[in-house]
Design a protein around this nucleic acid. Structure first.
Lengths: 146, 146
DNA sequence: ATTCATGCAAACGGTTTGCACGCAT
DNA sequence: ATGCGTGCAAACCGTTTGCATGAAT
């Protein structure tokens, strides 16, 4: 079995204090694989018998975000923030309007398009946000059974 | 001077009750031209000597949103929702981070990309939001003179 | 006359913060 | 020894809701 990542090393590289809670939070986010809320992190940690307070979860998330280890997005319409590991790759999201899960998509189709617009408008594009929404495979299937 | 739009007619077409407050809110959003928060709407109305309570602003926004007259997004990271007029044309925007002007772009580069994603993830995409930001031609020029 | 919109204040829920204590350096 | 991380409870703030009143149909 593959040895799990050395989260302590990751923190050290960012000159952050290395604590059990910080390592646990990074690990949960990484294990989860898709964007996750603060409360879900809190509950999953509880499930793994890690005692942590919700406010610590928030403080850890803030620390990890401002050190660039994770990123925060607010795509959902219920005012809950979502956190995910900050991969170097540029990515976008697919939001399922039914189960409200957020799926990450690596890569970006917009490079050529942005170049065209820059030429056309004399605009210098620094970045963009792209959200797509719809129904995930799972929810499509369930709809048919109703 | 051009006559302002008949917001009463717009509400009537949606079979919505035609009230002064609803018309005012639509008008403010339309005048504003770029996405605006509930509180900003409230303050702008106050500035126009329209007395309305903040909760009514929220209720009007909910009514307008669910009738498809405006749309709601939560792109900012401060947990405030933004509202804008729902235009029929599919278009995107270039937002200048310096002068805060908004440039409309007709058309959309995402159709093929979305088909790919649908095949890849089994996701059924219903729509998307794309914002690009940067500097417009004018502001680029001014930067060089500093 | 009926139904729905509004104002007010209070509730709600996700997030932040003050304070005292504990742990990493 | 010091400064930063943590737990707890309370505060915060954008948003929602219950209730009584008022306006639109």
């Amino acid at each position: 079995m593959e040895k799990s990542k050395d989260y302590g090393e990751i923190l050290k590289n960012k000159k952050m204090r290395n604590t059990k809670h910080r390592k646990s939070v990074i690990e949960i986010i990484e294990l989860n694989g898709q964007p996750i809320t603060a409360e879900e992190i809190f509950l999953k940690l509880k499930g793994h018998n890690v005692t942590i307070s919700l406010s610590t979860v928030y403080r850890v998330l803030e620390a990890l975000t401002s050190n660039g280890l994770i990123s925060k997005s607010s795509v959902t319409d219920d005012n809950k923030n979502l956190f995910e590991i900050n991969s170097l790759e540029h990515k976008h999201h697919l939001f399922c309007v039914k189960c409200r899960k957020l799926f990450s998509v690596n890569g970006c189709p917009l490079e050529d398009y942005e170049k065209d617009l820059e030429n056309k408008f004399g605009f210098e594009i620094e970045g963009h946000k792209l959200e797509m929404y719809g129904r995930c495979e799972c929810c499509k299937r369930n709809d048919k059974n109703i």
